[in-house]
Write a protein that binds this DNA or RNA. Structure first.
Lengths: 141, 141
DNA sequence: GTAACTGCAAACGCTTTGCACTCCC
DNA sequence: GGGAGTGCAAAGCGTTTGCAGTTAC
C-alpha cells in the first residue's frame, strides 16, 4: 500500500501521522505471514533503530481498534497480527508456528451458507486449520 | 462422563490416576463454556481445597497432549479450554468473553466441502465468530 | 500551544519451572 | 521401592502502563 493511502487511513481515524505509525502500518499491511509484535520490532529496528517495542504494541492496538488488523492469539507464544480481515482460512503449522492464508473457491458463499441460520450479527470471524507444514514433515523423517 | 470412563481414558494414555486429575478431567468434560485454568481452579477449590493452580495447568496440558481438550488462545486474557474436539463454531462475545458452541445444520458437510481442495492433512481446526451477546447488548442501552 | 505520541523501564497477568514431598502402581 | 504427580514459590514471557520528554497539527 502506498504511503498516501496509509496517511489517509490514519487521519480518517483520528490517529496522528508519525514516522513510527507509518512504518508499522505499512509493514503489517505488506505481510502475509501474520508476524508477532516482536518480529515487527526486529524487522523495523534496522530501518529505524530508535523505535520501541512499546510503540509497536500501541500502534498494533490502534490498528486493531480501527479494524485494520485482527489479533490471532494461541495457547502458547506471542499474538500474531493479521492484516486480512476478509474471510479466509489460516493454515497454522503446529510445529514451527508458520501461518499461511488459504482461500478455497467460493469461500464467501460457503461461509454465508454455514452461518445462514445464525441468530446473531457477527462482527468478525476466525478460521484456523492446524497441520504440519512440508518443511516440518520433512525435518521429522 | 462417569468416573470409570475417565479412569480408563487416563490409564489408556499412561497417565496415573490421581484425585486431582479425576476432578479436573471430569470438570472440564462437563463444561460447555470453555473455562480458563483459573476458573477451574476456583470451582474445584471448594471440593478439594489443597489443589494447586500448577496442577490444573499440568493436567490441562496432559489432556491437550492426549487430544481430550483444545486450547483457545485470544489476544487478551487467559487461554480457554475446549473439551469439544468435533467441528463446531465458537460464538465468542467480545465484551464479556463468554463462549457458546454453535452447530449449524450439516456443519460437517459444509466443512468438508470447504476444505475439499485443501492439499494438507488437518490435525485440528478452530472456527470462531465474534459478536456481542444479548446480555452485553442490553447492558449497553 | 497543547494534546497526542514516543521511548524507556517498571509492573502486570498468565503460565511454566524447579524442587522437596507424596502417592500410585 | 521407584518413578510419576503434587503443591508451593519463584521465574519466565509477552504485553501493558506510567511518566517525562517530544512531536504533529
Amino acid at each position: 500500500m502506498e504511503n498516501q493511502h496509509i496517511i489517509d487511513l490514519l487521519k480518517k481515524n483520528n490517529l496522528k501521522v508519525t514516522t513510527q505509525r507509518l512504518l508499522v502500518t505499512k509493514y503489517i499491511l505488506s505481510r502475509f505471514d501474520h508476524p508477532s509484535a516482536d518480529q515487527i520490532y526486529h524487522d523495523l529496528h534496522d530501518k529505524f533503530p530508535t523505535i520501541s517495542l512499546g510503540t509497536i504494541y500501541k500502534t498494533l492496538n490502534s490498528l486493531k481498534e480501527i479494524g485494520v488488523v485482527n489479533e490471532l492469539g494461541f495457547g502458547e507464544g506471542a499474538v500474531r497480527y493479521d492484516p486480512n480481515t476478509k474471510i479466509h482460512i489460516n493454515l497454522v503449522c503446529t510445529k514451527c508456528n508458520s501461518i499461511l492464508d488459504y482461500y478455497p473457491d467460493q469461500i464467501q458463499n460457503s461461509w454465508n451458507n454455514l452461518i445462514k441460520n445464525l441468530h446473531v450479527k457477527p462482527i468478525g470471524q476466525r478460521i484456523d486449520i492446524y497441520y504440519k507444514c512440508k518443511e516440518c514433515q520433512n525435518r521429522d523423517l
